[in-house]
Write a protein that binds this DNA or RNA. Structure first.
Length: 551
RNA sequence: GGCCCGUUGGAGAAGUGGCUUAACUCAUAUCCCUUUCAAGGAUACAUUCAUGGGUUCGAAUCCCGUACGGGUCACCA
């Protein structure tokens, strides 16, 4: 007769730690009433996903708003999919967005009392719990090969019965301990499965912090909890980690809803109090008329790095994501004239149930608004940082003459309603390149889009514009432009022109447009007066001469 | 296929039995302003809340069925 105790000892002889010792080592946190402990627990399998940023922001806000703790845990139990170094990117990018963990895994070392915070370093903790489960008869070694499992699944499909390792299909569930010991000693590979006592005919209920009460069929499958590589599966790691790390609210993607009964089943078996769950909806995308989850493979906007490369201010993305999470946030920003997330009364209950379609237009709107209202110095610093890593041409100009670039960024900024030209920093250079002489030379070379008309008259008008005053106010400057225009047959107001079009060559608008095209190369630009002010008299005149000479 | 979640305008959504002739924001369109563009101002945009039935004096709001969309059924998380 082999006891469970002996089986446990044979399987994990090196494990001496008891659950009580773990309980003592990781005591309940002393936090004020209502404080939530949340976490973000990604796998290091690539770059930060936009949906992950969404979830982590929600976790972070939930902890902060309640005076609790937000921590970061690395779920690196899938050694096959792990991408070397991606944990660094994960943490760096999160930090970039200001989502800094109070405790957790850091490449240079853990911070906090509830570690280790990387699952691959917690093997002995999982095994200690499993050893106890085996002693209690709630876990057992399973000797099925992948082929055996395939065969079971096929048989189930043929007889149209639910697939899975449960009940009579759980082949090794009722092996005698003697048999188990014999196979182990014979060197047969094994995994450990949880022994469920659930009944599929019954329901388990739980309250989701976002969706309210959810009722699901009870779990009755004996899930794998320890893989053959000695590492736990997600299901088990979640239960053990979030118990000993004293997480109070699990924020995770909605794809986890169907497996929640498995987790609840294990919490019950271990006699632990289950945490609250908040299942976050996924961010979707419309694809040929169908909604689907943002896909890292198909959608560039699924990777947070995309927004960083495009030069969206991190605040803009966060604000956009918050507008999806709590739709009253938008009204709040208007009422408070602020985009400060930390001041907003975020509520996890207000998250809508259906996954929102990712809306680039709306992101751009927020981003334009944020960039336009940002103080010049702040904007300049962000632009500088962006250009350094992502925009060579812009960077070169900033290095050559930062003050000049700063002046350009400041055009029509100091007003009640500042210009909103840029949704992202990548938009900047194409719009301002005409300011730089070598770029202007290229523009000139490509030909200027003047309206059809008398070239000679145009040249003479442009040459006359060299007499435009510098250093005066805009009103005086514009009067001077009108005067010059009048000399060349342009009406001084659009009304005059409309009233009697035959009497004029064109209106002031046409006159201004000619000047604009000559100086910037297109018929659209920010305020001309400010542009000329930045270019200065010398450059302006040189450009006018060059254009006139070509006509 | 089983199970679960969901369904208000092009998009995000408010609304949980009468105050809704369905808020607010983005997008779109038209007009005004205007030295262009951006901005700003004004107006328009769901006779109706997926659909069929029921409960009620009264339903987007409660109940049931149907359709559609999403998710999930691994030694992946």
């Amino acid at each position: 007769m082999v006891t469970n105790e002996e089986l446990a000892e044979l399987l994990f002889p090196e494990i001496k730690t008891s659950i009580d010792e773990l309980e003592a080592k990781y005591p309940p946190r002393s936090l004020p009433e209502g404080a939530q402990v949340t976490r973000f627990a990604p796998s290091p399998t690539g770059f930060l996903h936009t949906g992950s940023l969404f979830t982590s922001m929600i976790s972070y806000m939930t902890a902060k708003k309640s005076g609790g703790v937000y921590f970061f845990r690395l779920e690196d139990t899938d050694t096959k999919r792990t991408i070397e170094g991606s944990e660094r990117d994960l943490i760096d990018q999160l930090a970039h967005f200001g989502i800094n963990a109070d405790e957790g895994f850091y490449p240079e070392g853990d911070k906090g009392e509830y570690g280790p915070y990387r699952q691959s370093a917690r093997a002995s903790i999982y095994k200690a719990v499993i050893k106890e489960l085996i002693r209690k008869g709630r876990a057992y070694p399973d000797f099925c090969t992948p082929e055996d499992l395939d065969a079971i699944r096929k048989a189930q499909e043929e007889s149209k019965v639910l697939p899975g390792y449960y009940g009579v299909y759980a082949r090794d569930r009722n092996l005698s301990n003697e048999e188990r010991v014999a196979r182990i000693n014979a060197g047969t590979p094994w995994v450990i499965r949880f022994r469920s006592e659930g009944d599929h005919e019954r329901k388990t209920k739980f309250v989701d912090a976002i969706r309210g009460e959810i009722e699901l069929q009870d779990n009755d499958t004996d899930v794998v909890i320890l893989k053959s590589d000695g590492l736990p599966t997600y299901h088990f790691a979640h239960v053990v980690d979030d118990h000993f790390m004293r997480t109070t609210m699990i924020t995770r993607g909605e794809e986890w809803i169907p497996s929640t009964p498995i987790h609840l089943d294990m919490f019950r078996a271990l006699g632990w109090k289950a945490p609250k769950y908040a299942h976050i909806p996924s961010i979707m995308k419309l694809d040929h008329g169908n909604k689907r989850k943002l896909s890292k493979r198909k959608d560039p906007e699924a990777a947070v790095s995309y927004f960083l490369e495009q030069g969206y201010p991190t605040q803009a993305l966060l604000v956009y994501l918050m507008s999806i999470a709590n739709s009253n946030f938008e009204e709040w920003t208007i009422a408070h004239k602020s985009f400060d997330l930390s001041a907003f009364p975020f509520s996890i209950k207000k998250i809508a149930l259906e996954g929102a379609l990712f809306d680039q237009d709306k992101l751009n709107y927020f981003s334009k608004e944020i960039i336009a209202r940002m103080p010049l110095e702040e904007e300049f610093e962000l632009v500088k940082e962006y250009a350094k890593g992502h925009d060579e041409a812009l960077n070169a100009q900033i290095e050559r003459d930062p003050e000049y670039v700063k002046k350009i960024l400041n055009i029509e900024k100091d007003r009640k309603n500042p210009r909103k030209d840029y949704a992202k920093f990548a938009d900047i250079y194409p719009l301002i390149r005409f300011f730089f002489d070598e770029e202007y030379a290229k523009i000139l070379e490509a030909g200027l889009p003047f309206k059809e008309g008398d070239k000679k008259a145009l040249a003479s008008l442009l040459l006359d514009c060299k007499n435009l005053p510098f250093g005066t106010d805009e009103q005086q400057w514009f009067e001077a432009l009108k005067e010059i225009g009048a000399k060349h047959g342009y009406a001084t107001s659009n009304k005059d022109y409309k009233a009697n079009p035959e009497a004029y060559v064109g209106s002031v608008s046409d006159c201004a447009e000619a000047l604009r095209v000559a100086i910037v190369g297109t018929n659209q630009s920010p305020n001309l007066y400010e542009i000329l002010g930045i270019l200065g008299k010398e450059k302006t005149c040189a450009r006018l001469d060059a254009v006139a000479a070509r006509l």
